[in-house]
Design a binder for these strands. Structure first.
Lengths: 350, 350
DNA sequence: CTGAAAGCGCTTACAG
DNA sequence: CTGAAAGCGCTTACAG
């Protein structure tokens, strides 16, 4: 039976604690820092006293004496999307295994400078940005960190000058999707939410164009977008209304490529509500490969972001900078996503 | 155009910084701490110099001088379930608005003492536990914190001795579910994953029994559980196989109450695969009211946890302890969940 | 506003 | 192992 912790004022300094144990402050410090040349009896006495009193050395004093903080700042766009959270979770676990503590903060609009200052005042050894941020603001922060010599890595956000970054090759993902659908006999494609030409060569649009060209399918004739007809607020609803509009078209596409899983699922609902069979009369694909893809009817083909790999590489890029001279050129690493074929597209046309 | 931050060694102390600004260290400290009686010109000079150099005062030194850390430790069971993440997100936002910094950690099995020590060494002003933990271990940590006089609150986990806690009235949620289904004409209920008699009066089972009794429906005759037939690994699959087994029963229940949304959705798949119409031939309800409930076919009736309210109350309980003498009796607050009726159960039986 | 000084709780040589 | 001492980067009276 463990002794009940005393309800009196807790011990707050090594001096007080050393008096309690009956050892010198120096000796206690040595035990706490696992230094060699100590009698096992002494170590035990200190351990026991720590259990009895619950004493913990003040981290602020420890680090003030020059000991590295072993702390990494993680700046999140939000904690709302499953992929963002998975990245955070994977990163935190990985950092923890390397004995780093994470300082996790969600960036509120316009607060990036304040947030980075907070991280710096906590003397973090590096900062990770996960998600999408106002580009000029992020660029400014990266410039400051580079000026400071504080390591960083930007995950997901492509195109920030002088930023070390890790990005998903979304183009490659769409190439796989298009190849798969073409192999299943599809020649006409509805694009849902993929109207923006983002991310240059790593962007979805680039991949779609590239893949179609490789099959000698003219992009303009083979693809159709109705994004302009509907407002995107709730992704699921957006997909549903898009699908409803597509369903009324005379020569409607046989395959539907959605920006993400929620839009894809909404699309399936919309098409099914219009009496269309999936995948018999229409193939649908999502993006992100959330758990939910296995729970829909039919199950949804999607593109997996390879989050573990992304985070592994991100951490490598970040930790590789610690204690090294600053790099002159930004590091750019690309992650290849992976197509996961499920029922919603797995049907051979005519 | 902002000046490019200098690439030279950053300024790391007020002494150095004061020299840079051309003011006394004392004066700089006063500006940083927004103390009165300073010329606006002086304040501006310091501000400008901070922008130029990116200098941030060392938080470890600041707090060592006795300034409160304004830090709260948040101990999460995991970051895997949407509800857990929503709670974390809401809590962090709320604490931030009160000018508290969050230290977020995920508890790895058996590491609770180490984690709490880490929080204490960071001199947090309180600790929040979110999720379910090994009860004896959590009880031990709570005892230690009480001994220390460190404020805490336990969210979700009921029954920890001497813990201040906020819990969902799951019984109340199930009462609402049962009342709703009885009103729709149901008299026989399949229980999916709800075989354990957890949480006493706040537990689901208690609510189901209570509600059935109020309608003079004998619990033993009216409910059926097949949980023992299948192993619960993946909740969705668990629901699917449970439903398949229920479908083979001669006198199968007309309504199905699932432990959570994933099981409910699996159940819908299983029942539909057996050719049953939902809600025409079987009603299904979930628990947690995740976004996904609006994306299934049919959409899923579920019980909303009222996360914002839970977190609001949790923060109130925690922050209310700071700077106050320790309470002799633990605070227990209950949150009432809210039934959200959707298609999966919204059908009047014969 | 300046400047010198004390002290927060540690770690780390140093001499015994 | 002990004990006295210096110093990390701050804040806060205190005298000018």
């Amino acid at each position: 039976m463990k002794k009940k912790p005393s309800a009196r004022r807790p011990i707050t300094s090594t001096a007080e604690f050393a008096r309690y144990v009956g050892l010198a402050r120096t000796t206690v410090s040595r035990v706490l820092n696992r230094q060699p040349g100590l009698k096992s009896n002494t170590i035990e006495r200190v351990q026991r006293a720590m259990d009895e009193t619950g004493f913990t050395p003040n981290a602020y004093a420890v680090h003030l004496k020059g000991k590295s903080t072993s702390t990494i700042g993680i700046c999140m766009e939000d904690l709302l999307t499953p992929t963002a959270v998975k990245k955070l979770s994977a990163l935190q676990r990985l950092l923890r295994s390397r004995h780093y503590t994470s300082l996790i903060e969600v960036l509120e609009p316009g607060q990036s400078q304040r947030l980075v200052r907070h991280f710096l005042s906590m003397r973090v050894e590096g900062i990770v940005f996960i998600g999408h941020f106002p580009p000029e603001e992020l660029a400014q922060r990266i410039a400051e960190l580079n000026g400071h010599g504080t390591p960083h890595v930007v995950i997901d956000h492509v195109g920030i000058p002088n930023a070390h970054s890790v990005t998903l090759d979304r183009a490659g993902g769409m190439v796989d999707v298009v190849n798969h659908l073409v192999a299943r006999g599809h020649r006409s494609f509805g694009l849902l939410g993929i109207s923006a030409w983002l991310h240059g060569k790593l962007g979805r649009m680039h991949g779609i164009i590239q893949a179609l060209a490789a099959h000698r399918l003219p992009f303009a004739q083979c693809t159709r977008s109705l994004d302009h007809l509907h407002k995107r607020e709730n992704d699921f609803e957006f997909g549903r209304t898009l699908a409803a509009s597509f369903a009324t078209l005379k020569d409607r596409p046989t395959a539907y490529l959605a920006l993400n899983d929620a839009i894809a699922i909404g699309t399936m609902h919309g098409l099914q509500a219009a009496g269309l069979d999936i995948p018999g009369e229409a193939a649908v694909t999502g993006f992100n490969n959330q758990e939910i893809c296995a729970m829909t009817r039919p199950t949804l083909t999607s593109v997996d972001q390879q989050i573990e790999e992304t985070i592994r590489v991100g951490a490598e890029v970040l930790l590789g900078q610690i204690g090294q001279p600053p790099r002159s050129k930004p590091i750019l690493r690309t992650i290849e996503p992976k197509l996961v074929i499920r029922q919603s597209s797995d049907f051979q046309l005519g």
